[in-house]
Simulated scan of single mutants.
Amino acid sequence: MLLGFEHVGMTVSDMDRAVAFYCDLLGLKLALRKQVDRGEMGFFDTGTGMLEVFAPTTKTVDRFRDVPNHEAGLRHITFAFSSVDEKFAELEAAGIEVVERPRDAFHKEMIQRVAFVRDHDGILVELIERAPGRTS
């Protein structure tokens, strides 16, 4: 029996910068951070699942590559906020790379507002407001 969504794993170039972005700016909670073989691991709690982050000790972590439409792969990670406009303004003021400013969403049944930014490694992060009445 399925219990729920657990986590998505990703690689970053610097754990301190990941904590600063995902915890300090986006509001995730650092549940675990520790040294492991070949790097450092962190588990960031969203309240409804986790983001597993690995920062290798190597200094040659390449910037995130957007997945072309004709390739399989993960395209972005998404976090829901009570106000996309407020969160976006906070991120923009902090100097976070903007991809798409807040706008009304295309799939109004699921999402009311949407915006896109990139973290320090270029990972595409979608910010959304859920459609009215939607709880998950």
Score class of each variant (00 low, 15 high):
Glu126Pro: 06
Arg33Thr: 08
Glu52Met: 10
Val114Ala: 01
His120Ile: 02
Val67Ala: 03
Ser136Gly: 08
Leu127Asn: 06
His76Trp: 05
Val99Ser: 07
Met41Asn: 13
Phe64Tyr: 15
Val53Leu: 07
Met50Ala: 12
Glu100Phe: 06
Phe54Asp: 06
Phe79Gln: 04
Pro68Val: 09
Glu71Ala: 12
Thr57Arg: 10
Ala18Lys: 00
Met50Leu: 15
Ala72Met: 14
His7Ile: 06
Ala131Cys: 06
His70Tyr: 12
Thr78Lys: 05
Val125Gly: 03
Phe106Thr: 09
Val99Trp: 03
Arg130Leu: 15
Phe5His: 09
Gly95Cys: 07
Val67Arg: 08
Asp45Cys: 06
Thr135Arg: 13
Val19Lys: 14
Ala93Asn: 12
Ile123Arg: 12
Phe54Asn: 00
Phe88Pro: 02
Met1Pro: 13
Ser82Arg: 13
Gly49Arg: 05
Ala131Met: 00
Arg101Glu: 15
Phe54Gly: 04
Val98Met: 09
Glu97Trp: 02
Val84Pro: 06
Met1Ala: 14
Phe79Val: 08
Phe21Gly: 03
Met10Asn: 04
Ala20Ile: 05
Glu86Asp: 15
Arg75Val: 14
Ser136Pro: 00
Gly27Phe: 06
Leu3Tyr: 10
Arg38Gln: 14
Val53Met: 02
Pro132Trp: 01
Tyr22Thr: 02
Ser83Trp: 00
Leu25Lys: 14
Arg63Gln: 12
Val114His: 04
Asp119Trp: 09
Arg130Gly: 10
Glu6Lys: 11
Ala93Thr: 09
Arg134Gln: 10
Val19Phe: 10
Ile96His: 02
Glu40Gln: 13
Asp121Thr: 03
Leu124Trp: 06
Val99Met: 03
Leu26Phe: 08
Thr60Cys: 00
Arg63His: 09
Asp24Phe: 03
Gly27Tyr: 05
Thr48Lys: 13
Glu97Asn: 05
Ala115Asp: 02
Leu127Tyr: 09
Glu90Val: 10
Val53Gln: 01
Ser136Thr: 11
Ser82Ile: 04
Gly4Lys: 08
Gly122Met: 04
Asp119Ala: 02
Phe106Ala: 12
Met10Gln: 07
Leu30Asp: 07
Pro68Gln: 09
Glu92Phe: 03
Pro132Thr: 00
Thr78Gln: 13
Gly73Phe: 10
Asp24Ser: 14
Glu126Ala: 07
His76Ala: 10
Met15His: 06
Asp24Val: 01
Met50Arg: 11
Ile128Pro: 00
Met50Phe: 13
Ile123Lys: 09
Glu92Ser: 13
Thr57Lys: 11
Thr46Asn: 09
Arg113Met: 01
Thr46Cys: 14
